[in-house]
Computed example of a mutant assay.
Amino acid sequence: MSSPSPDHTAAPQQLPPPIFDARCKACWFVLGLLLLVVASFWSLDLQWVAFFSLDALRSMARFGGEFFPPDLSPVFVRKVVQASVETLAMSALGTLLAVVFGLLLALPASRLHAADRSWLRQPTRLLLNALRSIPELVWAALLLVAAGLGPFAGTLALALHTTGVLGRLFAEAIENAEPGPAAALRAQGNSTPAVLLYATLPQVLPQLLSYTLYRWENNIRAAAVLGVVGAGGLGQMLAFHMGLFHMGKTATILIAMLALVGLVDGLSFALRRRLTR
């Protein structure tokens, strides 16, 4: 009995991918973004020649030299330290309020399981979109009318904007949690709060804490800016002294801002590192 002859038919030659396949679509998208950036530079009519001219550089150097030496008098440094504490408190309290309300809004904004009808999902997400679409400065300007000048308006402004941001992030984390543990508890007849408490939240808690720390870093910077509209803290001192051209005092305030942001960034990085171990 003769053995079967080997198949000498050549494999069909693989043709190059069409120009509009998935990979090339990404290439066209990047090319479109580059063209948009080039068109933006052209439409804005940026005066690069005037910006890097000798007169402009000389004026910038003269203006920068006015910041030195910083005002390090004990009386003024004490005021800066008090404003720094106020800015730190605004950011911490605003973030804490945002965590509470963001988590409360994240639960109705997320679909907890496949059979969950989640009637409030879309309305709640629209509310979160509205909260975070309004910048902190606009919230502070609106709240100054009701709360008056000072850190209270700034704290509420941070809380409202950050609630929209954290609420959406928390909702996404809850929806993307591993469904197995929740399904096992649900199959045993446990209620929805029990499933959330013992199955879903333990999984997403490190992610929620990471989001919270990151937003706290951002709120430190935002709190320093909110004072420009009269919401207290370092920003209010910065707007006052810079408006009066007290450049030495302005330099001291800027140094305090940099130190405060660096301190919170380092603390947040250390806490996030411990959470991921």
Rank of each mutant, 00 (worst) to 15 (best):
E86N: 08
L156I: 14
I253P: 01
Q236D: 06
S84N: 06
H8C: 13
A222K: 02
V80T: 03
V80C: 05
A199Y: 01
A199V: 06
L271K: 05
T212N: 00
A10R: 08
L127K: 13
L31F: 00
V99F: 05
R78A: 15
L144V: 01
A223G: 04
G189M: 10
F29I: 15
E136R: 05
L105Q: 08
L131C: 10
G180Q: 09
N218W: 08
F152A: 15
L93M: 13
V204I: 03
F240S: 08
F41Q: 11
A270L: 14
F52V: 10
L149M: 02
A231H: 03
L15N: 12
S5M: 11
L158W: 02
K79S: 13
V49T: 12
D21E: 10
S210M: 07
L142I: 14
N219W: 00
Q82T: 14
W119Y: 15
S91H: 01
V99L: 11
S59W: 05
Q236A: 05
S43C: 06
S59D: 11
S210D: 14
V38C: 08
M257L: 05
L33G: 04
V204H: 02
A270I: 04
S110A: 13
L254K: 11
A61W: 14
P151D: 09
L137F: 06
A183V: 07
T250P: 07
T87H: 06
L238Y: 04
F67E: 11
L120W: 15
L107E: 06
G248K: 11
N176R: 11
L128P: 07
G167A: 10
G167V: 06
Y198P: 04
V195A: 05
P135M: 04
A173V: 10
L166T: 00
L54W: 14
L213S: 06
L54V: 12
G167C: 06
